[in-house]
Design a protein around this nucleic acid. Structure first.
Length: 117
DNA sequence: GCCATGGCTAGTA
DNA sequence: GCCATGGCTAGTA
């Protein structure tokens, strides 16, 4: 599996693999946000870049990109359509009020960066 | 110029 | 609802 890394305007690199690894720690039944992932990895403000990386997800089976939603608790986007995103999340136990996640703050995962080798 | 974002403000009710 | 943020890409020169 080859991942790409994103070159920030600052010159720093955000490795897509780091994003996917962190996202994989979000358990079924919970969600995180684009901005939370960005911040946890030390790139505050790069939420939009995270969205791009989600869109480029090479393996939706392994990387649960459907668990990444907007910071206001609304559904956010999805490469296969937000309808499917909602269906998957519903299957994982989340409830919706329109496009808004019910009890969003309770479902919002606390991201912890694992020390890498 | 586009977009799978987010934060802040005006302005309505 | 506006605009700052951030990288990508089609398409012009």
């Amino acid at each position: 599996m080859t991942y790409y890394s994103v070159r920030m305007r600052t010159g720093r690199r955000l490795d897509a693999k780091d994003v996917y690894d962190l996202l994989r720690t979000v358990p079924e039944g919970q969600v995180t946000t684009y901005g939370d992932l960005a911040k946890a990895l030390g790139f505050p403000g790069a939420a939009r870049a995270i969205g791009r990386i989600m869109n480029a997800n090479p393996d939706p089976i392994v990387v649960p990109c459907h668990r990444v939603v907007s910071s206001d608790g609304s559904i956010g986007g999805y490469g296969f359509g937000i309808k499917m995103k909602k269906e998957i999340l519903a299957k994982e136990g989340l409830q919706f009020d329109g496009d808004a996640i019910v009890d969003f703050e309770k479902k919002r995962a606390v991201l912890k960066l694992k020390r890498e080798k």
